[in-house]
Amino acid sequence: TPSSSDVQLTEEAVRRYLIRKPMTTKDLLKKFQTKRTGLSSEQTVNVLAQILKRLNPERKNINDKMHFYLTE
């Protein structure tokens, strides 16, 4: 049930991860797995997309993969 979720997909949580180190979309999705947040796959994708649009993180390619990151 959602009340038992131990991870919350919030703008602040995403911001903290991206300040710590550059991450791919897959890296971020791993941090907010549906079984831990209680969200559906579709909700996770939609909410994370909205958060990333708001944060508008910097992007760079590392090992040919696009990574997002933020500076403080």
Partner: peptide, 20 residues
């Protein structure tokens, strides 16, 4: 599963590509 993770990553990137 990893294939579901791949699908989610692809869907997320598609959403963001419209924006970028």
């Amino acid at each position: 599963s990893s294939s579901e993770a791949d699908e989610m990553a692809a869907a997320l990137e598609a959403e963001l590509n419209d924006f970028m």
